[in-house]
Nucleic acid binder design. Structure first.
Lengths: 351, 351
DNA sequence: TCTCGGTTTGCATCCGCAGTCAATACTGCC
DNA sequence: GGCAGTATTGACTGCGGATGCAAACCGAGA
């Protein structure tokens, strides 16, 4: 026999034992199974039973223990969301929206924040120990780590990064395409010499943007290209522009920055450090479409990622794969949207 | 007797049963308790035992099940972190730093994001079901909800909000003090007419800032004050400034915005909509010290919150109370730091 | 009133691990 | 070599809830 409900239910201070289904069952004069069924979705219970149990449960402040439930059902109802400092958290939206999407589906978010993208080891260990039902990651994992995850039977969805030749699901914004648009517009408007402000070397997104830009520049026959690399932050954006000037001696016709924040840094440094105004003296473009890019003082020409659709997709793809583990991987790539801001001289938009 | 390790360990695809301590015990030829001890911190086990178990564990890819462990130890090793869209997530830092601080202490973060601060009901229910060990919240709870939490014996720490007369722990930045500094500086520099751009009505932080400013203005004998209210966003910042002008007919000497982003909006609207430049024609101040406030085009005069120390404190206060539930509540209030930017005319700083 | 099909309900077990207690294995020392 | 004392180890139970199965129940048709 189990314990009986504690006699003194009101006086002891803290750490009081929480009511269990047995307590409720006893008070309601039914079996524990009955209580369990009342608190399940598809279970059968008569209305009378339901009522009696609910009354008792409310009286005791009973709440099913999700931990215990997870143990028996083999479903924790938690997913791991992995971000790194590098992650363009400039949209907190990503995280908030993701969490809300999951929430609506009854899935809880266990958050893992990496100092830098290399710290995946410990984090992976934790995710496995907590038996998360799925993983949504904006940080890279090594093939070995992926195999570990695969072996554990945990579905994964990558956010804005994808491993070539790896059979994994991912949601991303097509960075190359976006850069192609920017380059085409700039070239069509007559720009011939280019500066590239890259992101940090270990950022997949940064890399994709850089190669996207370089490929298209090369396709367009542009050869006068100078690159420097930063860390996605405002200060390095400024530093990068200065470095670019030092390297070249004279300003390029256009600067392609790996994200909006660095583009903003470039605009400021161009003006304050070199008396160059965008777009009159130089064209500067970014990527992301974050809030500050829309501030009137900058009005950055950029490509906006469809954050809402991306997070929505990511969440639902992951949930689908949790419910049906046999589902094959899927890679979704979203086009961004070109924002014709005022920081670059582009060809007039065709009507 | 328990099950024996599955015979076919390599071929079935997904959802393969994960190795348990029994599997490891069997392979290593020891008892389950032994395995359990090897994977615990303070438990005693001979080196020989340790080695044998680890070898077997590695061979099987065994990882202790944190869910099961949580069930037996009555500690989930998870804390709930509650944010609302309103939360000044403009520093994703808050979240990332918090998560890292908790991480270092072996505590996992279960994230709850509210659409608006009123949605605490469902969220609270979830937190209780998941048996989080503690709650760190940047959203308000009603006294009844607090009582529920208290009854469940779960420690809580409020971030940048505190209930008067409630016996709860909190960490906050002293908003009133910051506003007092700003007002004093502005008045000392000769400003006599003021515009106040408030935050959204249901934001505690916004409210504190507003009353802080109003109190000090009144203490300084300033009476020409016009207020309008926004939602902490850039666009409403602009709208608010326009509204302020419409209400007054002429610009105030200074505008006190409830946060930096709205201050930026005011700067832009003043310039673009009314040809007013800060600080020559008008002084505009914000609050928070977020990244964009430092961009050269704005250089907002503001008060910076000591985010790092605040998150650090919040995390450690919560953890302390998890480890010792008898610890009495504690309210920590941090002073911000006045940033003498270029968006407001202040009296010269005394040497 | 009796039987049949369909619901409800209760019983017994198990999920994976931690911790208690008793049994056993070492250790040093006389 | 024998013994007290300590360090390890194993058997067993319970954390709180879900679920297969069989018993109990209910209503309706014969």
């Amino acid at each position: 026999m189990r314990k009986t409900a504690q006699s003194d239910n009101t006086s002891d201070r803290t750490g009081r034992r929480r009511a269990t289904s047995y307590d409720v069952a006893e008070l309601a004069g039914v079996s524990q199974s009955a209580v369990s069924r009342v608190f399940q979705d598809g279970a059968s219970a008569s209305k009378a039973m339901r009522d009696r149990v609910m009354v008792a449960a409310n009286k005791l402040g009973y709440r099913p223990n999700a931990i215990a439930r997870g143990l028996i059902t083999q479903r924790s109802n938690m997913v791991a969301v992995v971000i790194s400092k590098l992650t363009n958290l400039y949209y907190p939206e990503v995280l908030v929206q993701l969490t809300q999407h999951f929430s609506e589906q009854g899935v809880r978010v266990l958050l893992f924040a990496l100092e830098n993208e290399g710290d995946t080891r410990k984090v992976l260990e934790q995710m496995l120990q907590f038996r998360v039902d799925g993983i949504l990651t904006a940080a890279m994992f090594t093939p070995e780590q992926l195999e570990t995850i695969e072996n554990a039977g945990i579905p994964v969805v990558f956010y804005n990064r994808t491993l070539k030749d790896q059979l994994v699901s991912s949601v991303r914004c097509d960075q190359e395409e976006g850069e192609r648009w920017l380059v085409d517009e700039l070239v069509a408007a007559g720009h011939r010499t280019f500066g590239i402000v890259e992101g940090p070397p270990d950022s997949v997104v940064g890399l994709e943007r850089k190669t996207g830009a370089l490929n298209e520049l090369s396709a367009q026959g542009i050869t006068d290209i100078t690159s420097v690399s930063g860390d996605f932050g405002y200060e390095t954006g400024r530093a990068c522009f200065a470095q670019l000037m030092k390297k070249r001696g004279s300003p390029p016709d256009a600067v392609i920055a790996a994200n909006d924040v660095m583009a903003i840094g470039c605009v400021d440094e161009a003006r304050e450090g070199f008396g160059l105004r965008a777009p009159e003296d130089i064209s500067i473009v970014g990527f992301d479409g974050v809030g500050p890019a829309r501030y009137a003082a900058y009005d950055i020409t950029t490509v906006r990622q469809p954050v809402h659709r991306m997070t929505q997709s990511a969440a639902s793809m992951l949930i689908e794969r949790i419910e049906d583990p046999e589902l094959s991987p899927e890679k979704r790539s979203f086009s961004g949207k070109l924002i014709r801001g005022g920081s670059a001289r582009l060809k007039a938009e065709d009507a």
